[in-house]
C-alpha cells in the first residue's frame, strides 16, 4: 500500500472513531443478533441436532449484510453530497489512494462487525444451548474450532462482498439515499421476487450468492463456486463504478 493510500486509510478510520456511530452500529447489531439467535434457539426442538454454534450466526449475517451495504453505500456517496470529496482530493490527489483507503477502512470495520456478530451469537447460542440440551462445547475444541473460525471468516467474506456492492453503488449514484434504496431494492425485493418466480436461478443471483459464500457454500453450490461467482459479480459492478469514479469531474 502506498503512503497516500495508508494516509487515506488512517483518515477514513478516524471517521469511525465516534461514540455515537459506534454505539448505534454495534448497539443495534448486538440487539438484533441477540433477538435473531434467541428466536432461532427458542424455536428449536430439545436435543435438536440441527442446531450448532454457527446456526444463529448464519441467520444474523443477513442483517449484518444489509447493515454493511447501507454503511458502505452511505459512507461512499456522502463524500459527494457533503462535498468533502473535493477537500479530500486536494489533499490526496490520487483517486486510487482515496478508494484504497476507503475500502481498507470499511474492510476493517466489517471485520470487527463480523467478529462482534460472531461473538454475540456464540455467547447467546452457548447460553441457550444448555436449556435445549445441546452441547456446543465440542465446537470450540480442536478441528471443530478451526471449522467454526473458517465459517466466521467466510461470514466476513460474504459481508465484504455486500460492502463492495454498497461502495460501487455509492460511487455510481453519488447519493446515499439512492444508493441505499437501490441496494435494498435489489437485495430484498427484486432478488426475492426473481428467486420466487424462477427458483432455478435464485441461488445464482448476486446477493443470494454472497449469502451462500458467507455460509461457506449452499445446497448444490460448492464454496469455490460461490467464491468464483461472487468475484464475477463484484467485478461486474466494480468496473463501471471505478471507471466513472476515475473519469467524472468532482463538482456539485
Amino acid at each position: 500500500m502506498s503512503k497516500s493510500a495508508f494516509d487515506a486509510t488512517r483518515g477514513e478510520l478516524l471517521k469511525f472513531r465516534r461514540l455515537s456511530f459506534l454505539l448505534s452500529v454495534f448497539g443495534s447489531l448486538g440487539v438484533l443478533t441477540l433477538l435473531i439467535v434467541g428466536f432461532a434457539w427458542s424455536r428449536a426442538e430439545k436435543h435438536s441436532s440441527s442446531m450448532n454454534l454457527t446456526t444463529g450466526f448464519d441467520m444474523a449475517l443477513f442483517f449484518l449484510g444489509i447493515l454493511t451495504l447501507c454503511i458502505c453505500a452511505s459512507y461512499t456517496a456522502q463524500e459527494y453530497t457533503y462535498g468533502t470529496l473535493r477537500n479530500v482530493l486536494v489533499l490526496t490527489p490520487s483517486r486510487q489512494a482515496f478508494l484504497i483507503g476507503k475500502l481498507s477502512a470499511l474492510s476493517a470495520l466489517i471485520f470487527f462487525l463480523t467478529l462482534y456478530t460472531f461473538l454475540v451469537s456464540s455467547v447467546v447460542s452457548l447460553f441457550m444451548s444448555g436449556r435445549h440440551g445441546v452441547n456446543l462445547i465440542p465446537s470450540l475444541e480442536g478441528k471443530a474450532l478451526l471449522t467454526t473460525l473458517a465459517h466466521c471468516l467466510n461470514g466476513f467474506l460474504g459481508t465484504m462482498a455486500l460492502g463492495i456492492f454498497g461502495i460501487a453503488l455509492g460511487l455510481i449514484t453519488r447519493s446515499p439515499i439512492i444508493a441505499i434504496s437501490l441496494g435494498l431494492l435489489w437485495s430484498l425485493i427484486i432478488e426475492s421476487a426473481l428467486g420466487g418466480a424462477l427458483p432455478r436461478i435464485g441461488r445464482w443471483l448476486p446477493t443470494a450468492n454472497f449469502e451462500s459464500l458467507a455460509q461457506s457454500g449452499a445446497t448444490g453450490f460448492t464454496y469455490i463456486h460461490c467464491l468464483g461467482l461472487s468475484a464475477f459479480y463484484l467485478l461486474l459492478i466494480s468496473l463501471p463504478a471505478l471507471y466513472l469514479f476515475k473519469q467524472r469531474d468532482v463538482s456539485q
Binding site: 483518515g11 468533502t84 479530500v88 456539485q252
Partner: peptide
C-alpha cells in the same frame, strides 16, 4: 465552492481527518 465538512463531526475532528488524509 464553499466549505465542505462532515456535519456530525466537530471542527477539530474534521481537521484531524483531513490532516491524516494529507
Amino acid at each position: 465552492e464553499g466549505p465542505a465538512f462532515y456535519p456530525s463531526m466537530s471542527g477539530v475532528e474534521n481537521l484531524k481527518i483531513f490532516a491524516r488524509m494529507g
